[in-house]
Amino acid sequence: MRRAYAAHRVPVGRVSVTPTAEQLLAIADDELILGWRDSEWTGIAPFLEEDVAFSSIAQNEIGHARALYELAARELGTTADELAFDRAPQEYRCAPLVELRLPDWADTIARHWLYELADELRLQVLKTSDDRDVAGLAEKIDREEAYHRIHAQMWADRLAGEPRFEAAVERLWPAALAALPEDLRARLAERVGRDVARGPQPGALARGNHTAELPELWEEMTMVRRSVPGAAW
């Protein structure tokens, strides 16, 4: 089945990409995969209002991914769809943090909170990009992410001190730290009130490595597109 769509697959893992495209892809992949994971709560979130809100956030993340893929695609001479769906799982640049399947709400909120804080730091850098399209898109995305941060923070404040939530933050912290480039990690630690030294173990959690949960997500995410290779939707 993999061979069937290989013809229009974009082997970005094997061509050299500019730092900008590389950086854009990393963020786009994070947003796509996290949006996908968050959307798994649609219909089963703890209560109806939260279901609507969290689904909306998931949808926003996928929208951000699309916009970022479009910019990256321009540089790589491909399309957003091809970047999002036609690469092999190991070619994705997302951080292991966003790949984890977290069927426990405390874990999901802990990741959401850590991710939004990390994403804000990353977007601040992107907003200063010399590329006006990149800087402009980062501005736009950040204006929406501001509401995600409000959502994440109100949950974090509400669950602060709850053992299940605190344990989830503790468990996910190394992966959150590893999701950021090294020069931003100290600032994230400061915001979360944690120690940067308790950071990623070398290897497994670093961007570029993937969890065992990614291929399964990828199978499901790309299933329809792979079912009719090259179709116009």
Partner: peptide, 20 residues
């Protein structure tokens, strides 16, 4: 109407349901 545990949640949910 909506249900929410406090003012911050209520604002967020109102925004999502009646403003987006």
């Amino acid at each position: 109407a909506l249900t929410a545990p406090d003012e911050r949640f209520a604002e967020e949910y109102a925004r999502e349901q009646y403003g987006r």
